[in-house]
Amino acid sequence: MKIKINNINKRFKKHDVLNQISLDMESGNVYGFCGYNGCGKTMLMRAICGLLKLDSGSIIIDDKQMKKDFDFPENLGFLIENPAFLEDYSGFQNLKFLTGIKNKTDDEKIRDTLIKVGLNPEDKRKYKKYSLGMKQRLGIAAAVIEEPELLILDEPTNALDTEGVRMVKNIIKEEKKKNTLVILACHDKIFLNEVSDVFIEIEYGKIKSIERNMQNEEV
C-alpha cells in the first residue's frame, strides 16, 4: 500500500489545523508522528481515515483518490482518541458485532485478539463497566482484528500500564512484519523511538521535520 498526501489544507474557525501537508508513506513502515497538543496530529489521522473533508489537496491511496474514488480506505484499522463502543455489550460482543459487518473473522480470532491485548474473552462485563485501560485495549483490538493493511493509532498508550505499553509495542512490531502500513501518534518520544521507522514532527498544522530512525533500522 502506498499513501501519497498532496498539499492538504484544512481550516476550522480561521485556524489552520492542517497546513500544506505533503507526505509519502508505504507499507512495511511505521510512521511516528509527534508534536505538542493541538498541533494537528489527530486531524491528519482523521484526514487519512476519510473522516475529514479537506479544503484543498488530495490523499491518494494506491493510485485512487479519496472522496473521488472512495470514501474510506480499504482494509483500515484505526484507533482515534477515545474509542467508542456499544455500552451494553461485552468486549467480545462488541468485536463480534463489528467484525460481523464484513464477516471476515470468526469467534476464535476474536478470542485470540482479546487475549493478545490482555482482555479476557470470557469476561461478561459490559463495556460501560470497563476501566479506561480496558477500553483502550478493546480499541486496539478493534483496530487490528481484521488484519488491516493500513493501521492508524492515535495515542495508543493512553491509560495503559507498563505491561499494556509493551503489548502495544509488540502489536506494532507484529503488524510491521505483516507488511502493514502503521501510522502512529504519541506524545512519548521514547516509545516512538522504539517502534517508528520514520519520525514526523508536526507544528502549527505543518510538517516541521521528517527523519529516518537509523537506530530502528539497525535493529
Binding site: 481515515c49 476519510g50 473522516l51 472512495f70 470514501d71 474510506f72 480499504e74 483500515l76 484505526f78 482515534i80 474509542p83 467508542a84 463502543f85 463489528l98 459487518i101 464484513k102 478493534a142
Partner: peptide, 9 residues
C-alpha cells in the same frame, strides 16, 4: 464512526 468506516459508504 467504527461502523461507517467499515461499511465504506
Amino acid at each position: 464512526i467504527q461502523y461507517i468506516v467499515r461499511i465504506k459508504k
